[in-house]
């Protein structure tokens, strides 16, 4: 419990920053788009003048900007990128930060097993991610209602999108932890988490464009594609399973690797 408290506290600043930025992203983009949608025909003309590849890359091909939910789908994609970077950040630094700042010598010399340490740290990271998750829920509904002029809209696709965040975050967290444990030493976290998050995004966004159908299947951006969810008001279940299975493999594997890991001294 003490480790959880300590870790959770150390995440507080970062959670506040991420949650704040995601709130701002939703606010700014959704409001901007809602004002554009008044003149929807002109906007569609502009969109049509863009090259096809560009539209595919930014998930704008099947865009339905006539409804607030359609607009939210595009904004949600930006949220996903932020959430992915945040979760990957936490994942990569979970263990590596201890080794980098030499606190592993402090922590692992305490009378507590490694399994418990990893559990406490994972739970603290998940709790922090959940706070961000809840912020997305609240700000999504708040801002959608702000921009919808009191009209009703379909809440089901929005709820489905928001429900997907848990698995999405867990994917990047657990994969981050696993990769950091597979590496001998993680020197810097940000490049790795950026690479993982954007790499996955690029796989999903450009995969279809390049005709590489199979490779994009590993990307959670593909598994939880907002356009698909909004259009079908359902998940693409087999793809979601890939995400879930990845998490279920990565977490036990991380425990196994961490319990066998040699913690090297510095330099």
């Amino acid at each position: 419990m003490n480790i959880f408290n300590h870790e959770f506290k150390s995440y507080s600043k970062s959670v506040a920053i991420w949650s704040g930025s995601i709130f701002l992203i939703i606010l700014v983009y959704l409001s901007a788009m809602a004002s554009i949608s008044v003149d929807i025909q002109t906007f569609n003309d502009i969109l049509a003048s863009f090259p096809e590849e560009f539209l595919i890359a930014f998930g704008m091909t099947e865009l339905d900007l006539s409804s607030i939910v359609g607009m939210y789908g595009l904004v949600f994609l930006f949220c996903q990128i932020c959430l992915a970077i945040q979760a990957a950040n936490y994942g990569f630094s979970l263990i590596s930060i201890e080794e980098r700042e030499l606190t592993a010598d402090f922590l692992l010399a305490k009378p507590i097993g490694r399994g418990k340490i990893l559990t406490a740290k994972l739970l603290a990271a998940i709790a922090s991610l959940t706070i961000t998750n809840l912020t997305v829920w609240v700000s999504s509904f708040l801002i959608i209602n702000l921009n919808n002029d009191g009209q009703s809209y379909e809440t089901k696709p929005v709820i489905l999108l928001l429900l997907s965040i848990v698995v999405f975050q867990l994917f990047f967290l657990s994969v981050g932890v696993l990769i950091s444990l597979l590496m001998k030493r993680v020197r810097s976290v940000t490049p790795l988490s950026m690479a993982l998050a954007f790499g996955m995004y690029v796989l999903s966004a450009f995969g279809g464009m390049l005709g590489e159908d199979t490779i994009e299947l590993i990307s959670p951006f593909k598994h939880f594609e907002p356009n698909y969810i909004i259009k079908n008001v359902a998940y693409d279940t087999p793809l979601v399973l890939i995400s879930v299975i990845t998490i279920l493999i990565a977490i036990p594997a991380s425990y196994l690797l961490f319990s066998k890991r040699n913690i090297h001294s510095a330099v």
Partner: peptide, 28 residues
């Protein structure tokens, strides 16, 4: 874990948690 309950270890390298006060670390 059981053994380490009774070991006091002073590592050769200096470590610290970012932004932590001395008292907080000792209490932790």
């Amino acid at each position: 874990p059981e053994i380490r309950q009774e070991i006091g270890y002073l590592p050769s390298e200096v470590f610290y948690y970012e932004g932590m006060k001395v008292l907080d670390l000792l209490k932790y």
